[in-house]
């Protein structure tokens, strides 16, 4: 499963000295689904304690890239990864890497809110439980409460922690999923179009939350909304047809892009 990365791992380092603040760093990263190549030689740095937006038209590979960071692509049988992607300098696709502990460090929030069909409390407590992060019920309860507080959900659900997570509204469910991701103490949080299923008010709340969370975590957000990328992210990467066209400071990408395709995309000429 995890052997793909090693061959190219040695190739990666030499020419590119790692940027000091880079939390996640990819070089010559290519991904194949069977015969079809989905990503071509991606070289992208994701800086610590920043929000990085991945934008681009549907099917451009941004979600595929996101899913390389916590190896969620492993569950797809036909998926093959070559090249290098490093978290804190350690190869993510190293066969020695334990996927479970990797995913503890790299949390994920999905496009559609997907709380477990269990109580709100159990949703947040599940991660800490399976990783054995807390000793005793009291500590677990504290962790659940603090995670819900950080996700900005606690005030709304504090009287009904035993009710099913699926009974919440869409926006609340998504914040519950964020609380669930936070509870295991990740360093990086990946968000795959976290607001695409939400109304504008719920979206605004999530965006606020993302901005707060940036203090503690490195955040990567895939989004289809250019305005959202501009509002919440410090850096933006534009993907097109599996190629990383341009990456840089958000302000620069949106005001003065270097590549014509980026210009066309952000002005709405395609995609």
């Amino acid at each position: 499963m995890a052997q793909q990365g090693t061959a190219a791992g040695t190739r990666a380092g030499a020419g590119h000295a790692p940027v000091p603040r880079a939390k996640v760093l990819s070089r010559e990263l290519s991904v194949f689904y069977g015969e079809k190549q989905a990503l071509f030689d991606i070289a992208l740095d994701i800086n610590a304690n920043q929000v990085t937006s991945l934008i681009g038209p549907s099917g451009c590979g941004k979600s595929t890239f996101l899913r390389c960071i916590n190896r969620m692509n492993d569950v797809i049988d036909t998926c093959r990864v070559t090249g290098s992607i490093r978290l804190d300098g350690h190869e993510v696709y190293d066969p020695m890497v334990d996927v479970v502990s990797l995913r503890r460090r790299v949390g994920m929030v999905f496009q559609k809110p997907n709380p477990f069909p269990k109580s709100i409390f159990e949703n947040v407590a599940y991660g800490p439980k399976i990783h054995g992060l807390t000793k005793g019920r009291g500590e677990l309860e504290e962790l659940v409460v603090s995670s819900l507080v950080r996700a900005g959900l606690f005030e709304e659900v504090k009287d009904r922690l035993q009710e099913p997570g699926t009974s919440l509204s869409g926006g609340q469910q998504q914040r519950l999923c964020i609380a669930r991701a936070i509870a295991v103490g990740p360093e990086v949080i990946l968000m795959d179009e976290p607001c695409s299923a939400l109304d504008p008010i719920a979206t605004a709340r999530i965006e606020e939350l993302i901005d707060e969370l940036r203090q503690t975590y490195t955040i990567v957000v895939v989004t289809h909304s250019m305005q959202q990328a501009a509002r919440i992210s410090q850096r933006t990467a534009f993907f097109h047809l599996g190629v990383l066209v341009e990456a840089g400071d958000t302000s620069k990408i949106f005001t003065n892009p270097e590549d014509g395709r980026t210009q066309d995309y952000i002005t709405g000429r395609f995609g």
């Binding site: 969620m72 929030v109 999905f110 709380p115 477990f116 599940y126 991660g127 399976i130 669930r180």
Partner: peptide, 12 residues
């Protein structure tokens, strides 16, 4: 989505 959610928090 349930499988992804569980894998995402690091369940084996």
């Amino acid at each position: 989505s349930i499988r992804e959610a569980a894998l995402g928090v690091g369940a084996s």
